[in-house]
């Protein structure tokens, strides 16, 4: 579905105007944390005008609303009068808040004859990490984004470059998402000046099973897209496996490069090539 999602503050007209030119697979128009409380109405208005008037749009549009228990949520969700929004990103998501959102979305879909709106759940509290499987099973939820900064704040711990303090939370999000066949999305890297740290952070997240990562600056997208795309080595392996499979029709298992290949690895090979094709990776 996507490898990279870029946060764009809803009150930044220049970034809104240019949202479609960045290399993000999805743009998250943010009405929450990157927007000061004095700017909430302004941001909502600007995003509304963007949705109404912009000529060019990114591949996927996500709107991060304010949490359901805030005074801004009701107005934020009223933006959903158009099919241009693909996903709502719900902050401080848990099962209860998802149910509140579900009810609102049902009303809006009926009222404005909209296609079903999908939801990305932002799990950023200890409670949501504990009940992440229930969140993942929710009918609206198509992806789970780990929010490590709020989580670290609640836990009263410091974030580190290595990220070992969020390993448990990452694993919970990855396992729950994978079990429910939705996409696990990694927390953004806030060191926007440190490309090496971003690279290492992406490699760790990918090795654990994350399938995408959020960015807070467009300059992070190139590295994120590179890491979360199939590598040349993976593509070569996948092509080799499928070629070998053609030679071994009717066999449940066969050998490739000295290793046994059976159904799960053939599925993996197909997925790699599907992803390479989806992201237009020509190698």
């Amino acid at each position: 579905m996507f490898r990279s999602l870029l946060f764009v503050p809803g009150n930044n007209p220049s970034m809104l105007q240019n949202a479609d030119i960045f290399a993000a697979d999805a743009i998250i128009f943010d009405l929450e944390d990157s927007v000061d409380i004095t700017e909430k109405d302004n941001a909502r208005q600007l995003v509304k005008h963007y949705l109404d008037d912009a000529v060019n749009h990114p591949s996927f549009i996500v709107v991060r609303v304010n949490p359901v228990d805030t005074e801004w949520f009701a107005s934020d969700i009223e933006l959903i009068q158009t099919n241009k929004v693909d996903f709502i990103l719900l902050p401080k998501a848990d099962v209860d808040s998802l149910n509140v959102l579900e009810e609102k979305l049902n009303d809006l879909e009926n009222k404005y004859q909209l296609n079903p709106i999908k939801v990305l759940a932002l799990t950023e509290t200890t409670k949501s990490i504990i009940e992440v499987y229930k969140i993942a099973k929710h009918c609206r939820v198509e992806g789970i984004l780990l929010g490590a900064e709020d989580l670290a704040s609640e836990l009263e711990i410091d974030r580190t470059n290595q990220g070992s303090e969020i390993s448990f939370a990452r694993s919970r999000v990855i396992f729950a998402s994978t079990a429910c066949q939705i996409i696990p999305i990694d927390t953004p890297n806030t060191n926007i000046e440190d490309e090496q740290n971003l690279l290492e952070d992406c490699l760790i997240a990918k090795s654990m099973g994350m399938k995408a990562k959020t960015a807070i600056h467009p300059s992070q997208l190139e590295i994120i897209n590179k890491i979360f795309s199939p590598s040349q080595k993976e593509i070569n392996w996948a092509k080799g496996v499928l070629k070998e499979q053609e030679k071994n029709i009717g066999k449940g298992a066969f050998s490739y490069q000295g290793k046994m290949i059976d159904k799960p690895l053939i599925t993996k090979a197909n997925n790699i090539l599907k992803k390479a094709s989806q992201y237009n990776i020509k190698r």
Partner: peptide, 11 residues
């Protein structure tokens, strides 16, 4: 520059 538009043009 940290301006995303400028960086995109430069890249």
């Amino acid at each position: 520059t940290r301006d995303p538009i400028g960086l995109k043009i430069a890249k």
